[in-house]
């Protein structure tokens, strides 16, 4: 790790570097990841940036960026990366805050009861704590639009199920260890399901197709069955 918190650079392949900002799941590290990723993406439009918990993958065309055969083949890219991380003039758009309405428990959150017992509290207390926290989209992965959210109240942490479900309904809000996430489509999954949102997390017709972007802030809002039905038919829209 270099001075002033600059990331270490690991050369993964001919066409990819990994910028590493740390090696733990940590909100402060992840915030730096997203700030850097946005900067790099703005400054180097031909390069694909893929942020994760503590790292940003850069994927580029080596024939365009690497001086093959030169004494220091990656120097140009290295300089461009360092410059854009240093350059305070690069405008980074404000972090968005998305509010996700959730119908907790019942058929939409079949594991809410287990999460409450595991935490030694009532279901209502689980909902209160889950909606009280500020979350951050640490990364998207597993499936298109699946957000890994940091910020779960540690009292609600619960290991994954021993027997994963073959099909988890689209929109299911779930807890896996210290993380919480939302299934964007019907998928197999082992996280504990505590509720469901009527919002579509990933729609090809939308630009961008994912409701949540890496680095977004997220809050959950408890809704009742009637509001769930209303939002499901109108397509939501208040997030």
């Amino acid at each position: 790790m270099a001075l002033n918190g600059a990331p270490s650079i690991e050369v993964l392949s001919e066409e990819a570097w990994l910028l590493r900002f740390g090696d733990t799941i940590d909100a402060a590290v992840n915030a730096r990841v997203h700030a850097a990723s946005r900067r790099l993406q703005a400054a180097l439009p031909g390069i694909e940036c893929v942020p994760a918990y503590a790292s940003v993958l850069l994927r580029f065309d080596p024939l365009q960026w690497i001086d093959i055969g030169a004494a220091t083949p990656g120097q140009r890219l290295h300089d461009a990366v360092r410059a854009s991380l240093r350059d305070a003039a690069v405008v980074v758009e404000d972090v968005r805050v998305a509010t996700i309405p959730v119908l907790y428990g019942g058929e939409h959150g079949p594991d809410l009861h287990d999460v409450a017992s595991h935490a030694g509290m009532s279901e209502a207390e689980v909902i209160t704590r889950h909606t009280a926290a500020d979350y951050r989209v640490a990364m998207l992965g597993f499936a298109p639009g699946f957000p890994y959210l940091l910020g779960l109240d540690p009292a609600l942490a619960m290991p994954r199920r021993a027997d994963p479900r073959l099909a988890v309904a689209a929109g299911s809000v779930a807890i896996g260890g210290l993380q919480t996430g939302i299934y964007p489509q019907a998928l197999p999954g082992g996280w504990q399901l505590i509720g469901r949102t009527p919002l579509a997390l990933f729609e090809l017709a939308s630009t961008p197709p994912s409701l949540l972007q890496p680095g977004d802030r997220v809050r959950f809002r408890a809704i009742d069955a009637r509001e769930y039905e209303r939002l499901a038919t109108t397509g939501g829209g208040d997030a």
Binding site: L12, S13, T24, V50, A52, L57
Partner: peptide, 10 residues
């Protein structure tokens, strides 16, 4: 390890 972006060929 914590999850990171992956690549073909890894």
């Amino acid at each position: 390890l914590i999850s990171e972006a992956t690549l073909p060929g890894t």
